[in-house]
Amino acid sequence: RQGFVPAAYVKKLDSGTGKELVLALYDYQEKSPREVTMKKGDILTLLNSTNKDWWKVEVN
């Protein structure tokens, strides 16, 4: 499932696989259909980080 999360809630990881991955630093509950819920410690695939406030991710 793809959607947006606050950029301040995730940290980029060095995956070494060519995929950009991020680590969820905090729990986040989606507040609109365009967002996704994540739990602290989740590893997500980063799809787009051009917006400084909201990053598009895919929940694996």
Score class of each variant (00 low, 15 high):
residue 43 I to E: 03
residue 4 F to W: 15
residue 5 V to F: 00
residue 59 V to N: 08
residue 1 R to S: 07
residue 5 V to D: 01
residue 10 V to N: 00
residue 58 E to G: 07
residue 7 A to Y: 03
residue 49 S to M: 10
residue 42 D to V: 04
residue 55 W to L: 04
residue 16 G to C: 12
residue 5 V to W: 01
residue 14 D to I: 12
residue 16 G to D: 15
residue 44 L to Q: 00
residue 48 N to G: 06
residue 9 Y to T: 06
residue 48 N to W: 07
residue 18 G to R: 10
residue 47 L to I: 15
residue 55 W to T: 04
residue 33 P to G: 09
residue 20 E to S: 14
residue 37 T to R: 07
residue 2 Q to K: 10
residue 49 S to A: 14
residue 33 P to A: 12
residue 28 Y to A: 01
residue 28 Y to M: 01
residue 34 R to L: 14
residue 60 N to G: 14
residue 20 E to C: 13
residue 39 K to S: 09
residue 47 L to K: 05
residue 3 G to K: 03
residue 32 S to F: 06
residue 31 K to D: 06
residue 50 T to D: 15
residue 45 T to M: 11
residue 9 Y to H: 06
residue 22 V to D: 01
residue 2 Q to T: 11
residue 13 L to N: 03
residue 37 T to M: 05
residue 3 G to M: 06
residue 8 A to S: 14
residue 41 G to A: 03
residue 19 K to R: 14
residue 23 L to I: 15
residue 35 E to F: 06
residue 17 T to Q: 15
residue 44 L to I: 06
residue 2 Q to V: 14
residue 56 K to I: 14
residue 56 K to A: 08
residue 25 L to M: 09
residue 48 N to Q: 10
residue 41 G to D: 06
residue 38 M to L: 09
residue 23 L to Y: 09
residue 39 K to Y: 11
residue 3 G to V: 04
residue 36 V to S: 02
residue 27 D to M: 03
residue 41 G to M: 03
residue 36 V to R: 02
residue 47 L to A: 02
residue 11 K to R: 14
residue 27 D to Y: 04
residue 27 D to S: 08
residue 36 V to A: 05
residue 12 K to E: 05
residue 48 N to F: 06
residue 10 V to F: 05
residue 28 Y to N: 01
residue 29 Q to W: 11
residue 59 V to G: 07
residue 58 E to I: 08
residue 11 K to E: 10
residue 5 V to L: 03
residue 36 V to C: 08
residue 50 T to K: 12
residue 34 R to Q: 12
residue 53 D to V: 15
residue 56 K to L: 15
residue 37 T to A: 07
residue 22 V to K: 00
residue 23 L to W: 06
residue 19 K to V: 13
residue 38 M to A: 02
residue 13 L to C: 11
residue 8 A to N: 14
residue 57 V to Y: 01
residue 46 L to W: 02
residue 4 F to L: 09
residue 27 D to G: 06
residue 59 V to W: 09
residue 30 E to V: 07
residue 49 S to Q: 10
residue 12 K to I: 10
residue 10 V to M: 06
residue 11 K to N: 06
residue 31 K to C: 10
residue 52 K to G: 08
residue 1 R to T: 08
residue 27 D to K: 02
residue 9 Y to E: 01
residue 17 T to H: 14
residue 13 L to T: 05
residue 5 V to Q: 01
residue 27 D to N: 08
residue 22 V to Y: 10
residue 2 Q to C: 10
residue 56 K to W: 15
residue 12 K to P: 08
residue 58 E to P: 00
residue 2 Q to Y: 08
residue 17 T to Y: 14
residue 23 L to R: 09
residue 56 K to R: 11
residue 36 V to Q: 03
residue 34 R to Y: 13
residue 25 L to I: 10
residue 28 Y to P: 00
residue 13 L to G: 03
residue 54 W to A: 02
residue 3 G to E: 02
residue 3 G to I: 04
residue 14 D to T: 13
residue 8 A to H: 12
residue 36 V to I: 14
residue 54 W to G: 01
residue 19 K to T: 12
residue 53 D to N: 13
residue 56 K to M: 15
residue 50 T to C: 09
residue 41 G to F: 05
residue 42 D to P: 00
residue 42 D to Y: 05
residue 51 N to H: 13
residue 22 V to M: 04
residue 16 G to A: 15
residue 40 K to S: 07
residue 29 Q to I: 14
residue 49 S to P: 06
residue 46 L to S: 01
residue 60 N to P: 15
residue 3 G to W: 04
residue 27 D to R: 03
residue 44 L to D: 00
residue 22 V to F: 07
residue 54 W to F: 07
residue 40 K to R: 12
residue 38 M to W: 02
residue 35 E to I: 03
residue 52 K to C: 09
residue 43 I to K: 05
residue 28 Y to H: 04
residue 29 Q to L: 13
residue 51 N to E: 10
residue 37 T to V: 03
residue 36 V to K: 02
residue 10 V to G: 01
residue 14 D to M: 11
residue 5 V to H: 01
residue 24 A to F: 01
residue 6 P to C: 04
residue 48 N to M: 07
residue 55 W to E: 01
residue 38 M to V: 10
residue 9 Y to L: 14
residue 15 S to C: 14
residue 56 K to S: 07
residue 48 N to I: 08
residue 55 W to Q: 01
residue 10 V to Y: 01
residue 29 Q to R: 11
residue 47 L to M: 07
residue 20 E to Q: 15
residue 50 T to M: 11
residue 24 A to D: 01
residue 37 T to S: 15
residue 23 L to A: 06
residue 19 K to Y: 11
residue 50 T to F: 09
residue 5 V to N: 01
residue 57 V to F: 01
residue 18 G to M: 10
residue 50 T to W: 08
residue 12 K to W: 07
residue 37 T to D: 04
residue 51 N to G: 10
residue 22 V to G: 13
residue 18 G to W: 08
residue 23 L to T: 07
residue 11 K to D: 05
residue 49 S to H: 09
residue 44 L to M: 14
residue 26 Y to K: 15
residue 49 S to V: 07
residue 52 K to E: 09
residue 57 V to N: 01
residue 52 K to L: 10
residue 44 L to K: 00
residue 45 T to E: 09
residue 53 D to P: 02
residue 16 G to M: 13
residue 14 D to E: 14
residue 46 L to Q: 00
residue 14 D to N: 14
residue 48 N to S: 12
residue 11 K to Y: 10
residue 22 V to E: 00
residue 52 K to D: 10
residue 59 V to E: 09
residue 54 W to S: 03
residue 47 L to Y: 03
residue 9 Y to I: 06
residue 36 V to G: 02
residue 11 K to F: 09
residue 55 W to H: 02
residue 29 Q to D: 14
residue 20 E to F: 11
residue 13 L to F: 11
residue 24 A to H: 00
residue 48 N to T: 07
residue 11 K to T: 13
residue 10 V to Q: 01
residue 9 Y to S: 09
residue 37 T to L: 03
residue 15 S to R: 12
residue 45 T to H: 10
residue 34 R to W: 15
residue 10 V to A: 03
residue 28 Y to D: 00
residue 52 K to I: 10
residue 38 M to E: 00
residue 13 L to A: 04
residue 59 V to F: 09
residue 26 Y to A: 13
residue 19 K to S: 10
residue 8 A to Q: 13
residue 31 K to P: 04
residue 17 T to M: 13
residue 30 E to C: 11
residue 40 K to I: 06
residue 3 G to A: 04
residue 23 L to G: 03
residue 42 D to C: 06
residue 58 E to Q: 12
residue 35 E to W: 03
residue 16 G to W: 11
residue 18 G to V: 10
residue 7 A to D: 01
residue 14 D to C: 14
residue 54 W to K: 02
residue 49 S to N: 08
residue 46 L to I: 05
residue 24 A to I: 03
residue 13 L to P: 02
residue 31 K to I: 06
residue 15 S to Q: 10
residue 27 D to C: 06
residue 43 I to F: 05
residue 19 K to I: 13
residue 47 L to E: 02
residue 49 S to G: 09
residue 50 T to V: 10
residue 2 Q to G: 06
residue 18 G to H: 12
residue 39 K to I: 07
residue 37 T to F: 04
residue 46 L to V: 06
residue 21 L to S: 08
residue 53 D to Q: 13
residue 24 A to G: 04
residue 54 W to D: 02
residue 58 E to L: 08
residue 21 L to A: 06
residue 53 D to E: 12
residue 47 L to C: 06
residue 41 G to Q: 02
residue 9 Y to A: 11
residue 36 V to L: 15
residue 20 E to D: 14
residue 23 L to E: 14
residue 39 K to L: 08
residue 57 V to D: 01
residue 18 G to S: 12
residue 4 F to N: 04
residue 9 Y to F: 13
residue 28 Y to K: 00
residue 60 N to A: 12
residue 13 L to K: 04
residue 40 K to Q: 10
residue 57 V to E: 00
residue 58 E to A: 11
residue 16 G to P: 15
residue 51 N to P: 05
residue 27 D to T: 05
residue 58 E to H: 05
residue 19 K to E: 12
residue 31 K to V: 08
residue 4 F to V: 06
residue 8 A to V: 10
residue 28 Y to R: 02
residue 6 P to D: 01
residue 31 K to Y: 05
residue 55 W to A: 03
residue 34 R to H: 13
residue 6 P to A: 02
residue 42 D to R: 02
residue 55 W to P: 01
residue 6 P to I: 03
residue 60 N to V: 12
residue 45 T to L: 15
residue 11 K to L: 14
residue 11 K to P: 00
residue 25 L to R: 05
residue 26 Y to S: 08
residue 14 D to H: 13
residue 25 L to V: 07
residue 21 L to C: 10
residue 37 T to W: 04
residue 35 E to Q: 10
residue 16 G to T: 14
residue 59 V to H: 15
residue 17 T to A: 14
residue 59 V to S: 14
residue 29 Q to H: 14
residue 23 L to N: 02
residue 30 E to G: 15
residue 27 D to Q: 03
residue 31 K to Q: 14
residue 36 V to H: 04
residue 51 N to R: 10
residue 14 D to G: 15
residue 9 Y to Q: 05
residue 29 Q to E: 15
residue 52 K to W: 06
residue 5 V to I: 08
residue 6 P to N: 03
residue 13 L to M: 12
residue 28 Y to I: 02
residue 5 V to E: 01
residue 52 K to V: 11
residue 6 P to W: 04
residue 43 I to A: 03
residue 40 K to A: 13
residue 51 N to W: 07
residue 25 L to A: 04
residue 55 W to C: 02
residue 9 Y to M: 12
residue 57 V to P: 00
residue 28 Y to T: 00
residue 4 F to E: 03
residue 1 R to K: 13
residue 51 N to I: 05
residue 46 L to C: 05
residue 4 F to D: 04
residue 16 G to H: 14
residue 36 V to W: 06
residue 38 M to H: 02
residue 3 G to L: 05
residue 16 G to I: 13
residue 9 Y to P: 00
residue 6 P to M: 04
residue 57 V to S: 00
residue 25 L to G: 02
residue 44 L to W: 03
residue 21 L to H: 08
residue 18 G to P: 09
residue 59 V to C: 09
residue 3 G to C: 04
residue 25 L to E: 04
residue 38 M to K: 00
residue 56 K to P: 01
residue 7 A to F: 02
